[in-house]
Design a binder for these strands. Structure first.
Lengths: 187, 187
DNA sequence: TCTGGAATATGATTTCAATCATATGCTGCC
DNA sequence: GGCAGCATATGATTGAAATCATATTCCAGA
């Protein structure tokens, strides 16, 4: 099943594809076909700077959509390159644009987008905290430590070593508990 | 004039307010009235953690909206506190929800939100670059250096000192030009 | 069951950005 | 016109996170 709000679209709007490492889904400047939902695998969005610098715009992960803005644009403005094999669903630009005439879809889309924006803002605030210990604490308070510590560290833009050390310091300070290997909770 | 897409809403949906430092616009748990567009001034959104930690969720700046997700929620889930006096416009939750029945508004909202998400993802990628010089270069390539260097540094989550030093190093490396005091461009 | 890979965890060292300090240019305003 | 405040700019020092290294545990899969 597709994640919200794309589950509300007719099945005719979607096309499943398997992807292999190195595949190029689209190139900067190509006509837009639509957005993508990554089921499994990894995809990088990259932009090439005026002087040839490669700049990673986004790393798409399982269960998330990417290139949403392409629905509102004539041309892709970055490259999409498959890093790890997997599968994805392409969702037609025209189907999405048409679906905005359906208030249920429109509201679901709006809700989803608003929540995403909020989550991004919060992570950006947290990432702005300089001290690793404070940053990790804020990340825990924000509920970002749900999966592995390695994933958590990546979301905080810290190395996992720094994150483990901060977690230990927080445990020693009594602010966090470590009920079992790899699990941490607010004290 | 309000920023997109709220300019499409009927004027009856908006209420202008002047705000003073220290004012509380809403509290965590209060019934949601709607979202806000900050015209001038500064507003912080803060959440209080389970153990009383204050965590800044977002710093709203002039010309931007905040609490968009409240439109889809019964209760505010953070506090909104005015840091610097100014003025803002409150936009009724019910008016926004109703406006999603208008495909033009829905699409404008979708486009705006998708672009914001994209911009956030890009900034997060850039902020994840460790070396100050690489980060600053990426920021320039991404077109983030439009205002002052101080603002640019804040967006990159770097101190302005580190940013100035990186800019100088980039100029010395011939990757960036410094046509006049305070202005930098790609070489 | 063995094996390989990833997550967990922590120690030692290095590096580089933060911090502290200082100076100048520019702008608005009283 | 002078002063306050901010942006620009750079030097010196410090501190903390990155990096490098290593060990153990856990899990999936051959």
């Amino acid at each position: 099943m597709l994640p919200e709000p794309y589950d509300l679209l007719p099945t005719t709007a979607r096309q499943s594809h398997t992807i292999a490492a190195g595949d190029v889904l689209f190139r900067q400047g190509a006509r837009t076909l639509g957005l993508y939902v990554l089921i499994t695998g990894r995809v990088h969005l990259e932009r090439v700077g005026p002087n040839g610098e490669r700049l990673i715009i986004h790393r798409a992960t399982s269960g998330t959509s990417f290139a949403e803005a392409s629905v509102f644009s004539e041309r892709y403005h970055c490259d999409a390159i498959v890093m790890d094999a997997g599968e994805l669903v392409r969702i037609d630009k025209s189907a999405v644009l048409a679906a905005f005439a359906n208030p249920d879809f429109a509201r679901a889309y709006g809700r989803h987008a608003a929540q995403q924006v909020q989550a991004h803002r919060q992570i950006m605030e947290i990432v702005g905290i300089r001290r690793a210990e404070d940053r990790v604490m804020a990340g825990i308070v924000a509920g970002l430590l749900d999966g592995t510590v390695v994933d958590f560290a990546a979301r905080l833009q810290l190395t996992h070593e720094a994150t483990y050390r901060a977690l230990r310091a927080l445990v020693e300070a009594g602010r966090v508990t470590n009920p079992s290997r790899g699990t941490y909770r607010l004290a």
